[in-house]
Lab assay of single mutants.
Amino acid sequence: MIHRILNHSVDKKGHVHYLIKWRDLPYDQASWESEDVEIQDYDLFKQSYWNHR
Rank of each mutant, 00 (worst) to 15 (best):
Y49T: 01
H52R: 14
S9W: 10
E35Q: 08
H17S: 11
D41Y: 07
W32G: 01
S31W: 03
G14Q: 04
V16M: 13
F45N: 05
H8T: 03
W50V: 03
D36W: 08
Y27I: 15
L44V: 15
E38Y: 08
E33H: 09
E38R: 08
D11N: 10
L19F: 06
E33L: 11
L6Q: 05
S9D: 08
S31Q: 05
S34A: 12
Q47F: 09
K12R: 10
K13E: 13
H8S: 04
Y42L: 05
S31T: 14
D28F: 06
K13L: 08
L25R: 14
D43W: 10
V37A: 15
K46M: 02
Q29S: 09
D43R: 06
K46E: 04
K13M: 11
Y18S: 05
R53P: 07
I20G: 03
H52Q: 15
S9A: 08
H17W: 09
I5Y: 00
F45K: 08
Q47R: 12
I2R: 04
W32N: 03
D43E: 15
I20Q: 01
E33D: 00
I20R: 04
H52P: 08
V10S: 07
I39E: 00
R53V: 12
D28A: 15
D11Q: 00
E38M: 12
Y27R: 14
W50A: 02
Y18T: 00
N51W: 07
S48Q: 13
Y49F: 05
M1S: 10
G14A: 01
R4Y: 12
W50N: 03
Y27P: 14
Y27M: 10
Q40L: 09
Y49C: 00
G14S: 03
Y27S: 14
V10A: 06
H3A: 12
N7L: 07
Y18P: 02
V10M: 07
N7F: 06
I20P: 01
L25Y: 09
H3M: 07
Y18N: 03
I20T: 01
H3G: 14
V37T: 14
Y27T: 15
D41N: 11
Y18F: 07
F45Y: 13
V10R: 09
D36V: 02
D43L: 07
I20E: 02
M1N: 15
D36G: 09
G14M: 00
P26Y: 08
V37I: 10
I2E: 06
Q47H: 13
I5K: 04
E33A: 12
R4W: 09
I2P: 03
M1C: 10
H3W: 10
Q29L: 10
V16K: 12
R23S: 10
I20S: 03
H52W: 14
H3R: 08
H3L: 07
Y18W: 03
Y18C: 06
V37Q: 14
S48N: 14
K13Y: 10
L44Y: 12
M1F: 14
R4P: 03
W22M: 07
E35P: 01
K21C: 07
S48E: 14
K21H: 14
E35C: 04
L25H: 10
H52D: 11
Q29F: 05
R4H: 12
K12E: 11
I39H: 08
L19G: 05
V37W: 00
A30W: 07
K12I: 11
V10N: 04
L19H: 02
G14Y: 05
Y49H: 04
W32T: 00
R53Y: 14
S31G: 01
W50T: 04
R23K: 14
V16L: 12
D36P: 01
I2H: 05
D41R: 01
Q29K: 15
N7M: 06
W22F: 02
D24L: 06
Y42T: 05
L6A: 03
K12D: 12
N51G: 11
N7G: 08
W50E: 01
Q40P: 13
Q29M: 08
K21S: 08
H15A: 12
V10Q: 08
L44D: 11
K21N: 06
Y27H: 14
I5E: 00
Q47D: 09
K21P: 02
H52A: 13
E33R: 10
P26R: 06
N51K: 11
V16G: 03
R23A: 10
E38C: 11
I39F: 15
I20F: 00
F45M: 09
I2K: 02
P26Q: 05
H8P: 02
Y42V: 14
H17G: 03
H8F: 01
Q40S: 09
N51D: 14
S48T: 12
Q29G: 05
W32F: 00
Q29T: 04
I39K: 01
Q47W: 07
I39Y: 10
R23W: 11
Y27C: 11
M1H: 07
W50D: 00
W22S: 02
I2Q: 00
H8I: 05
Q40W: 06
D24E: 14
E35S: 12
H15D: 06
L25P: 08
S34Y: 04
K46L: 05
I39A: 02
Q29A: 12
W32L: 04
Y27D: 15
D28P: 05
N7R: 09
M1V: 14
I20L: 05
E38W: 09
H52C: 12
A30D: 03
S34C: 15
V37L: 13
S48R: 15
D41I: 00
G14P: 04
K12V: 11
R23M: 09
H3I: 00
L19A: 01
L44E: 10
Q47P: 03
V37S: 15
Y42A: 05
Q47T: 14
E38F: 12
D24P: 03
Q40N: 08
D41H: 07
D43M: 09
L44W: 09
D43C: 10
Y49D: 08
S34V: 06
Y49N: 02
L25Q: 13
E35T: 07
Q47S: 13
I39G: 02
D11G: 05
K46W: 02
M1E: 14
D41C: 02
Q29Y: 07
S9G: 06
W22H: 04
L44C: 09
N51F: 12
R23C: 09
P26G: 13
W32P: 03
Q29V: 06
E38Q: 13
V16Y: 14
D43I: 01
Y18K: 02
K13W: 07
V37D: 09
V37M: 15
Q47K: 15
H15T: 14
S9P: 03
M1L: 09
K13F: 13
I5Q: 05
S9M: 12
H8Q: 02
S31E: 03
F45L: 08
H17L: 09
D36L: 08
G14W: 04
S34Q: 12
E35N: 09
I2W: 02
I39L: 14
L6P: 05
E35F: 00
Y27W: 11
A30I: 15
R53H: 11
S34E: 14
P26M: 03
R23D: 05
Y18L: 01
I5S: 02
R4M: 11
E33G: 03
E33S: 06
H52E: 15
Y27A: 14
H8E: 05
Q40G: 06
M1P: 11
D41G: 09
G14V: 01
K21L: 10
I20A: 00
V16C: 10
Q47L: 08
D11M: 00
L6G: 05
S9V: 08
Q29D: 08
S9K: 15
A30P: 08
D11P: 01
S48D: 14
W22K: 01
G14K: 08
H8K: 00
L25G: 08
H3S: 13
I20K: 01
